[in-house]
């Protein structure tokens, strides 16, 4: 790996207009999908499906728009860790709520 390229990765990783636009199109498709999915009544599964699609959108925004895909490992680890512990808090609360 050439040095110049490495530096570019560290500090000035410029994401092209094209790849931003591609991510945007993906987000639009997922938005359409979530509206369409809500129209179909699948009972208890409506919420998990909507949350799954929302999380896919959130993943795209985080990885590309918020640049996490190109960040250093420690920043990626912090983001992943925070999300994970948030998930744990949600799971524990629901474990409590569901068993009352």
């Amino acid at each position: 790996m050439s040095h110049g390229h490495e530096q570019e990765h560290d500090h000035v990783h410029i994401v092209s207009y094209g790849s931003h636009t591609l991510v945007y199109v993906g987000l639009l498709i997922l938005t359409g999908l979530t509206v369409a999915a809500a129209g179909i009544d699948v009972g208890a599964f409506n919420l998990p499906i909507a949350m799954l699609i929302a999380s896919c959108k959130a993943g795209l925004v985080l990885a590309y728009f918020m640049h996490i895909k190109y960040e250093k490992t420690y920043i990626q680890a912090f983001v992943l860790g925070t999300t994970f512990f948030m998930f744990v808090v949600f799971c524990l609360t629901f474990a409590d709520y569901a068993t009352r």
Partner: peptide, 10 residues
């Protein structure tokens, strides 16, 4: 992204 489906859809 999370507020929209929770309030308007689900």
């Amino acid at each position: 992204i999370y507020l929209f489906p929770l309030f308007y859809l689900v």
